[in-house]
Design a protein around this nucleic acid. Structure first.
Length: 539
RNA sequence: UCCUCAGUAGCUCAAUUGGCAGAGCAUCCGGCUGUUAACCGGAGGGUUGCAGGUUCGAGUCCUGCCUGAGGAGCCA
C-alpha cells in the first residue's frame, strides 16, 4: 500500500509515450538532422526522442523502408529509425502473417484499430491490442475472448490458419494477459456479437499471473480489496461509462445556461455548516479541514460572476455505515444570484432531467447490461411531484410513521415517502432547526425555510439538497448565534452581506447517489471509482 | 458509538444430535477443430479468523478479542 512504481513520473508527463518507444517496431530519433532550416537552427533539446512523442500531422514518412523523416516546427527534418530493444518477457514479434500493408511503412499505425471499430473493417486485416478476459481451447483451436476497453470480441486461433509458432504461443496465454493481434475480421454467426477475429499473428505483451477475479460471484470484501482489478468486469465498466456521461451532461447543462465553473478549495480553515464531523489535517502547525461543501465559496463566486457552480470531492468524517454513505464523495454545487425558491427548484429539476436524458440517449447498452428497468428514469421529466415538509409529515402519519415536528427525514422516512412516487420528487420548506444556519427563513412562517430536497424514487434517497440563502446580515448573525457557531472563521462570508447582498440560492447534487440511482446499483460503493469507506481506503 | 448477522482450500459454499473436513470453480498435467461462465479424465491444495474453556472427542457448545457486512444516528 502506498507503493509507487519508480520512474513513472508525473501522470501528465510524456512517460507513456517514451515507454512505447522502447518496444519493438517503434522509432527512435537517430540524432541526425538531415536539413537544417536556413532561418533557424533546430533546438536539439526540443527534438522528440521517439516518433510517438509527435502529433500525427507532423510525421512525414520516408520512402526508404524502415525509417521516417519528420519535420519539426516545419523547419528541420530529423531521421528516425526502428528501435530494436526487446523488453523483458516480451515475445519478439513474428514476421509470419504480418499485414503486408505494414511493410515499408514503419511507425504507421493506420491499421491498428479499437475493437469498437471492428464492424466497419469486415473483410480486412487489422491489428488490435487488448487483454484476454476469457479463454477456451479445443485441441487445434483457441477461442481468445479479447477486450480493449472499447468492446469485447472473440479471436479464433486455428492450427490450420495461423503459423505453427503463433498457434504454439497461445498455450502460454492466461486470463488477463495482454496481447497484440493481427487478424482477419469476419462475420460469423457462431461468434458472440456476430463478428470475430481470425488470428494471423499474435504477440504476448505480458503473461498475467494467476488472476484473482473469476467468472463467478465474489464477496464484497474480496472485490473491494481488488477494486483496481474489479474495474475490468463488464458491469463495473458500464457503471464507469455512465458516471462519465453523467459528469459530461452536468458540465454541458451548466455551460449551456451560462454558469461559470469555479473550483472550491478542498483544504478549509473551518467547517462550512458546523453540523458534521470533519477530517482534520495539519496545515503547517494549524488545523485545517477537508471541505464538506463548496457552497459558501460559491456564494462569493456568484457575487462576482452571477451564475456559478463547482464540482469536486467533499469529505465527511461521520462513521456512517449504510449503502448510501461514503467518506469521500463528489458533489456538484450551483449557486446563482437573484435566484428564488421556485427558480432553484426548477434548476434542480432541469439538471436531474437533463442528466437522465443524456444517459438514456447515449448509454442504452450499458443500462441494458446492468439490467436497469428504465421506467422510472424515463419519467424523470419536470415538473417533479412536490410536497411540503408538513404535507410529508401527514403522508407519513397516514402510513403509521409519526415524525416529530422539526426532525429531518431519516432513511426510513425517505423510503416510506418514496413509495408514493414513481419518479423523482421534491420535498420543500423544511424547519429551520433541522437545517443549516445560512438558509433563508420564510417571511410568513419563521419556523420554516426556503429549502428543498430532491429524492430519487425506488428507495435511493436524497440526491439534491438546497435552499435560498439568508442575505440579511442581522438575521444571519442571529442564525449563527442560534447554531452556536464561531464567528471569526465566517467573517469573510459575512462580508458578502456587507458589500452588496442580493438574494441567492443554490443546491448540492451528490454525484455518487445520482449514478447509483441511474445505474440501479444497490450500494454507492459501486458508483464511485475508488470508494473511501469506513475503515477502508485501499486501494 | 449502538443493534443484528457472518468468518471453513486461492474463490463461492457444504459438513445431520458434538463423532474420519468435502464439493464446484481456479491452478497444474492430459484429451478434444466452433467454444459461449465450454466440456471430459487425473493431480496438488486446510493452524476451520485469533486466544482460552467444557468434553473421551469441538468447524459445531461457552467466554473474550479481531475482521467484515447490513442497519440506526449524520447527510449528498
Amino acid at each position: 500500500m502506498g507503493r509507487r512504481a519508480p520512474g513513472l513520473g508525473h501522470p501528465l508527463s510524456p512517460g507513456p509515450a517514451l515507454r512505447l518507444g522502447r518496444q519493438p517496431g517503434y522509432l527512435r530519433n537517430t540524432g541526425r538532422s538531415l536539413a537544417a532550416s536556413p532561418l533557424r537552427r533546430p533546438d536539439i533539446l526540443g527534438v522528440p526522442r521517439t516518433l510517438f512523442d509527435l502529433p500525427f500531422r507532423d510525421r512525414v514518412f520516408s520512402r526508404r523502408p524502415r525509417t521516417a523523416r519528420v519535420r519539426i516546427d516545419g523547419a528541420a527534418v530529423h531521421e528516425y529509425r526502428p528501435l530494436r530493444v526487446r523488453a523483458r518477457g516480451v515475445a519478439r514479434p513474428s514476421r509470419a502473417g504480418r499485414n503486408p500493408r505494414r511493410r515499408g511503412r514503419p511507425g504507421d499505425d493506420m491499421t491498428r484499430i479499437w475493437l469498437e471499430e471492428l464492424r466497419s473493417h469486415v473483410g480486412e486485416e487489422v491489428e488490435v491490442g487488448g487483454w484476454v478476459f476469457n479463454l477456451r481451447s479445443s485441441g487445434k483451436l483457441y477461442f481468445i475472448q479479447l477486450r480493449d476497453g472499447t468492446a469485447r470480441v472473440q479471436a479464433v486461433c486455428a492450427a490450420d490458419a495461423a503459423p505453427a509458432e503463433v498457434f504454439a504461443r497461445c498455450a502460454k496465454l492466461t486470463l488477463e494477459s495482454s496481447v497484440r493481434i493481427t487478424a482477419a475480421v469476419r462475420e460469423d454467426a457462431r461468434a458472440p456479437g456476430g463478428v470475430e477475429l481470425l488470428v494471423k499473428d499474435l504477440d504476448i505483451l505480458s503473461v498475467a499471473e494467476d488472476y484473482p477475479i473469476q467468472k463467478k460471484e465474489h464477496g464484497v470484501d474480496f472485490l473491494l480489496d481488488r477494486r483496481h482489478l474489479w474495474f475490468r468486469s463488464p458491469r463495473q465498466e458500464a457503471i464507469l461509462r455512465i458516471r462519465s456521461t453523467v459528469e459530461n451532461a452536468i458540465s454541458a447543462f451548466f455551460d449551456e445556461r451560462g454558469f461559470v465553473r469555479v473550483d472550491a478549495p478542498i483544504l478549509t480553515p473551518t467547517s462550512c455548516e458546523g453540523t458534521t464531523t470533519l477530517f482534520e489535517t495539519d496545515y503547517f502547525g494549524q488545523p485545517a479541514y477537508l471541505s464538506q461543501s463548496g457552497q459558501l465559496y460559491m456564494e462569493a463566486a456568484a457575487a462576482a460572476l452571477g451564475k456559478v457552480y463547482c464540482a469536486g470531492p467533499t469529505f465527511r468524517a461521520e462513521k456512517s455505515k449504510t449503502r448510501r454513505h461514503v467518506m469521500e464523495f463528489w458533489m456538484v454545487e450551483p449557486e446563482a444570484a437573484f435566484l428564488d425558491h421556485e427558480g432553484n427548484v426548477s434548476l434542480a429539476e432541469d439538471l436531474v432531467a437533463s442528466i437522465v436524458a443524456a444517459v438514456l440517449a447515449r448509454r442504452r447498452a450499458e443500462l441494458e447490461l446492468l439490467k436497469r428497468d428504465v421506467g422510472a428514469l424515463s419519467r424523470a421529466k419536470p415538473p417533479f411531484p412536490r410536497v411540503s415538509y408538513e404535507r410529508a409529515r401527514e403522508v407519513l402519519s397516514a402510513k403509521g410513521r409519526d415524525l416529530p415536528w422539526g426532525e429531518d427525514l431519516g432513511g426510513d422516512e425517505q423510503t416510506a415517502l418514496a413509495e408514493e412516487f414513481d419518479r423523482p420528487f421534491v420535498v420543500e420548506y423544511f424547519p429551520f432547526e433541522a437545517k443549516a444556519f445560512y438558509m433563508k427563513r420564510r417571511e410568513d412562517d419563521r419556523r420554516l425555510t426556503y429549502s428543498m430536497d430532491v429524492f430519487a424514487p425506488e428507495g435511493y434517497g436524497e440526491i439534491v439538497g438546497g435552499s435560498c440563502r439568508e442575505n440579511d446580515l442581522e438575521t444571519l448573525l442571529e442564525n449563527i448565534a442560534a447554531h452556536e457557531l464561531p464567528l471569526e472563521p465566517l467573517e469573510w462570508y459575512l462580508d458578502l452581506r456587507r458589500y452588496g447582498a442580493v438574494p441567492t440560492a443554490g443546491f448540492g447534487l451528490g454525484l455518487g447517489r445520482t449514478v447509483m440511482w441511474i445505474c440501479g446499483v444497490k450500494h454507492i460503493r459501486e458508483a464511485i471509482p475508488f470508494p473511501r469507506m469506513l475503515n477502508r481506503f485501499y486501494p
